[in-house]
Computed example of a mutant assay.
Amino acid sequence: MTSSPPRRRVDPDRRRRIIDATIAVIEAEGVAGTTHRRIAAVADVPLGSLTYHFTGLDELIRLAFEQVAEASSDGVLARLEQATTREEAITATVDVIAGNLWSTPQTLLLSYELYAYAARHPEIAAIMRGWMARSRAALERHFDPLTARAIDALIEGIGIHDSVDTDPLTPEQVEAVIRRVAG
């Protein structure tokens, strides 16, 4: 009796699971602590799967940050795109900031890692520029480009500050700041 070749496990979501695991490892260990072995363990895949599906750790980190940037901006953009007037855009921006649509604990932590990593890796900085361009384009539907840029910075900046501030801004204070910037 001849033995048949081993059956290959069908796992169509493996690539996505590995990227998700990379995000989890970056969140838990930081980029500096992200290794192939840790990613494989979290993804529950053989170590060889990483080199089969990806060219290396740099690609995994880039894809993870692309996914984080896209997911982070999607919620913000969805809320901003509901606005049809400038007044609704101000309200939407307040909702984004005060409602923590962008600044969840996970997003903040991953954003810190992304900013630090991008400072040393220009190809990753391009991901951030794409994220900012998407936000600014949504804001520019209601504000001039300079104001949109300032409001975009406030969305991230206030979220970052409020994450560690013992007295975070109230929605009313956020609205007052946005109205001052918007003129």
Rank of each mutant, 00 (worst) to 15 (best):
A137E: 14
A137T: 14
A137L: 08
A137W: 03
A138L: 09
A138W: 04
E140R: 14
R141V: 05
R141W: 03
R141M: 01
R141P: 02
H142G: 00
H142C: 03
H142Q: 06
H142Y: 08
F143D: 07
F143E: 00
F143W: 02
F143H: 03
D144R: 11
D144M: 03
P145H: 08
P145A: 03
L146C: 00
L146D: 09
T147E: 05
T147H: 08
T147K: 04
A148W: 07
A148L: 09
A148T: 04
R149W: 09
R149L: 15
R149I: 01
R149Q: 12
R149V: 06
A150N: 10
A150R: 13
I151N: 09
I151K: 07
I151A: 09
D152K: 05
D152L: 11
A153Y: 10
A153W: 13
L154F: 13
L154A: 12
L154P: 11
I155C: 05
E156A: 03
E156T: 04
G157W: 04
G157I: 02
G157A: 07
I158W: 07
I158T: 12
I158P: 13
G159K: 08
I160W: 03
I160V: 13
H161A: 14
H161K: 11
H161D: 14
H161I: 12
D162E: 10
D162V: 03
D162W: 05
D162F: 00
D162G: 09
S163F: 08
S163V: 03
S163Y: 09
V164D: 02
D165K: 11
D165M: 03
D165S: 15
T166Q: 10
T166L: 12
T166E: 12
D167A: 15
D167F: 14
D167N: 15
D167Y: 13
P168A: 11
L169I: 04
T170Y: 11
P171S: 11
P171G: 07
P171W: 15
P171N: 13
P171A: 14
E172C: 12
Q173W: 02
Q173E: 14
Q173D: 06
Q173S: 07
Q173K: 07
V174H: 01
V174F: 06
E175S: 10
E175F: 11
E175K: 14
E175Q: 15
A176S: 15
A176G: 11
A176I: 05
A176W: 11
V177R: 04
V177E: 01
V177N: 02
V177T: 05
